[in-house]
Design a protein around this nucleic acid. Structure first.
Lengths: 267, 267
DNA sequence: ATGCAAAAAAATGAATGCAAAAATATGCTT
DNA sequence: AAGCATATTTTTGCATTCATTTTTTTGCAT
């Protein structure tokens, strides 16, 4: 007996991995699968796929803050049954991206003022740690690379190119975390960064000229401490830098006040 | 209308929560649920229940390091079907307590030398952050409480009472994290603490007399900086303290070398 | 015996099914 | 018509089922 016609998802997984290299003969009825295959990483389990995709989906803001997560719809969108999707929901809840309501599914976690303050502070603590660790082992080449990024960013600052400034700024912070040579730290940092990605971005755009100049000076100090491999000084400087970012972000949030408390109270 | 006799699992959840009113540790991911459910019925989901119990089960070392997690056995042990248990497994994998092997279930994650170093450093970074934040808002009463714990611990040190010393020591560190008034930090800290709980404990028992005295002096310095609310100084001191703990722990691990690399290679 | 291949058994991953709970719609009473 | 209670639909949580993969056992040849 042959079941080739029975296009169960698990069968498709195999097809996918075989087909992926050529990437051209994917059946038209499996669009969802095609999307998955597109994502270059060779994810093995459907659970991992869905987790990754759902996380992106939420982080990118496809579901409004505080809204319920439409389980069934997402199943259709991703072309999977509820089981792997629900597994992903539990993980995202553990990550703090969504909340689970008893017998009421999940909803996108709404970040209030306090949540943001806490997140920025923890990010600050982690970058602070990263800087300290980086000073222990960073090579001249790595410092040179961060210097290059720094001056590239300075160029964008001079040209008032906010978008590219933001991009390079992010890369500098990521590099510092990377050269700390601590994978555990990197994972946790990436997780938190995901949670505040949207806010961070918009907060940056709302930056006042004043704050921008200040941030540049702070980055000078960061680079300086890094060059001298002054661990605790860099630690302090990075934390203060993030503290100031926090202030800017929370101020910006003040314009569009979205507090989770309002919803929590009515229940 | 009353359906008490209909013992479906979901009904049992309620009964169970009534029977076990004092949960030792509310899992961080369930905080929101606990809060929400608090107004009215304190009903936890089966998922949360199993997650919490399975986490404890693994942390307490009921499964040898690197061993496969026996899915079916655990289902019988906890009296649930595979669905909620598997959901818990995914979450624990995300927390880093276990690893998922494609088509081969899960196994308890084995912490090698490098993993421990990284974990201790991140713990150090988080405590360092906690100390810094604590200095911003800590009250005299809170300092007094930590002082009390400190002198209690000192007493155990003088009596060479390792067990109680360890307990109070833990509580001091937890208090510092608590008074940082950052729930996000507290959650992440608790998560990491869980991962290294066993190692940390045994490492502490293996402590050399020399290291013990050193640790006491470090704690003096910590308390001193806290009294003066010297944020960055406390930050440095706490990190160095954890760095020294790391050294002690890794040295101890050297006696019983259990590296995950050995297993990873054979596959 | 020892090593390998095939078959049986067990375990895994994911879909489906089903009862309880929530959300929504409908029908009553005032 | 407004308010409330009941019926219907939808959603949710978990158990069960099923195809696939891995592991173990069995049989066979060397």
């Amino acid at each position: 007996m042959v079941f080739y016609m029975q296009f169960r998802p698990s069968t498709l997984v195999i097809l996918r991995t075989i087909v992926t290299p050529m990437k051209s003969t994917i059946p038209e009825s499996e669009m969802a699968i095609a999307q998955i295959a597109d994502n270059g990483s060779p994810e093995l389990s459907l659970h991992g796929e869905i987790l990754s995709r759902l996380r992106d989906y939420v982080v990118e803001g496809n579901i409004p803050d505080g809204d319920r997560v439409p389980e069934r719809q997402l199943c259709e969108l991703f072309g999977v049954s509820r089981t792997p999707l629900r597994e992903a929901l539990k993980v995202l809840a553990a990550e703090g991206l969504i909340e689970l309501l008893p017998n009421r599914g999940a909803r996108v976690r709404q970040l209030g003022k306090r949540d943001l303050e806490e997140l920025f502070d923890v990010m600050g603590g982690l970058e602070s740690l990263a800087g300290r660790l980086a000073c222990e082992t960073i090579t001249d080449e790595e410092i040179a690379e961060i210097e290059r990024l720094h001056y590239e960013m300075y160029g964008y600052y001079l040209h008032r190119d906010m978008h590219n400034y933001f991009q390079v700024n992010q890369r500098i912070h990521e590099r510092i975390v990377a050269v700390s040579r601590n994978e555990t730290l990197r994972t946790i940092y990436a997780n938190l960064a995901g949670r505040i990605r949207r806010v961070r971005y918009s907060a940056n755009f709302a930056r006042k000229r004043q704050r921008w100049a200040e941030a540049m000076r702070e980055h000078e100090a960061i680079l300086d401490a890094l060059r001298r491999r002054a661990g605790s000084e860099l630690s302090d400087t990075l934390f203060q830098h993030l503290r100031n970012k926090r202030t800017a972000a929370v101020e910006h949030l003040g314009c569009t006040p979205e507090g989770p408390t309002a919803e929590a109270v009515d229940g």
